[in-house]
Amino acid sequence: MMGCCWRKAVVYILMIWLQQCCFQSVAILDPLDFLALQSIRKSLRDVPGSNFFQSWDFTSDPCNFPGVYCDSDKVIALNLGDPRSGSPGLTGRIDPAIGKLSSLAENFLTGDIPAGFGELRSLHTLDLSYNQLTGSIPRPLGSLPVLSNLILCHNHLDGPLPSFISNSLTRVDLMHNNLTGPLQSDSFPPSVQYLSLGWNKLIGPVFTTLPKLNRLNYLDLSMNHFTGLIPCQIFTFPISNLQLQRNQFFGPVQPDSQVTIATIDLSYNRLSGQVSPMLSTVQNLFLNNNRFFGSVPESFVDRLMDATIQTLYLQHNYLTGFQMNQTAEIPLSSVLCLQYNCMVPPTQSACPLKAGDAKTRPTAQCNEWRG
């Protein structure tokens, strides 16, 4: 009898342990997210022939609902009315409780940005990033008086930029879209500190726009079709990262004083003239694939050898000299590339694979450039 009771006790304890393990393996959705999903469900309904919400049964785990994506106990994405979930469409107005989904990130929103957003006169932040939105940025958004953050990156937006009037605007991130047209002198107010317009199709000069944005601490205009001179004023701004690569900027780059920006990328443009010694204080400098000529100032050599410069890319230009002692050793923390210039690069020059195999530029090209 004692043995039988002992075996039953062991089985009972084992069942309790298994139940606890199973219970602990299921993450419980955050209560605020749970209530937000309920509000969203009540505000929308299937159009005739749709059964998207049929399985949204709140007696089960909402993270298993069609169109709901969770990470741990938080909803991170919604795909409302996903055709792959049997939905030809939904109708209704999304409940404002969607704003309580604090971890909501990449989604699958499509269509245009409603011009009605321009009527939200107290709107401070608009973040519709990482969606599939199309059409242009509504002009009424530019007239929002207290807008401080506009984040529309990673969509399919096109058309020109509206002009923004809010003196509270500090962050603008519109990168990875299909925006076109030039920057106007009044495109952005002087309050902007973070401006990211990379990976678009913007054109024209920036000489009348950038000098007014003297509070910038981050600027990315890369992968566009900007032209003209780079205004020397921007090198005095409190910028930590300046990304102007892969445009059509031309002419010399001559800052008026020593530059304190940590990273500057001016590669793949049409810049020319001699390399300014004022740039030798930049930690990571990318001037490759331009039309710079002449000898590199000695200040670059000094700062490279004392590891002040971490990355110096000068490949694919028309440079003729780099006065470094051939027996000197470049610090392991520093990288130098001088390949494909009108000189023999130092033996320690370390270049990326895309720089190619050719060490020096053909003599005919160098003579033609000098001529």
Rank of each mutant, 00 (worst) to 15 (best):
Q20H: 04
V75T: 12
S50L: 06
M2K: 05
D158A: 12
G228C: 03
V275R: 13
V26L: 15
A307W: 09
N224I: 07
V75W: 13
H225V: 00
Y268E: 10
I234E: 12
L141D: 10
D57Q: 15
T308F: 09
L287V: 05
S129K: 02
G321K: 11
N177C: 05
T260V: 14
L44V: 13
F108Q: 07
Y69F: 09
G3Q: 08
A97R: 04
T281D: 05
Q184M: 11
P182H: 09
W6N: 01
S25Y: 00
Q258K: 15
L174S: 03
R121I: 04
M305E: 01
M324D: 01
P162I: 06
S187H: 06
C366N: 12
L338D: 10
S280W: 07
A36E: 06
P31H: 08
L338V: 14
N284P: 01
K359L: 14
A27Q: 10
L271G: 04
V259S: 06
I113H: 07
S163H: 09
M15S: 05
A27D: 04
F52I: 11
P231F: 05
S299K: 05
V68D: 09
G294A: 06
V192R: 08
R215S: 07
N155E: 08
W199I: 06
R361E: 05
V335M: 10
F249K: 02
G111L: 09
L229H: 11
P362T: 03
R84M: 14
S60H: 15
A350D: 12
D95R: 01
S43H: 08
N131C: 02
C342T: 15
R291Y: 13
G111P: 11
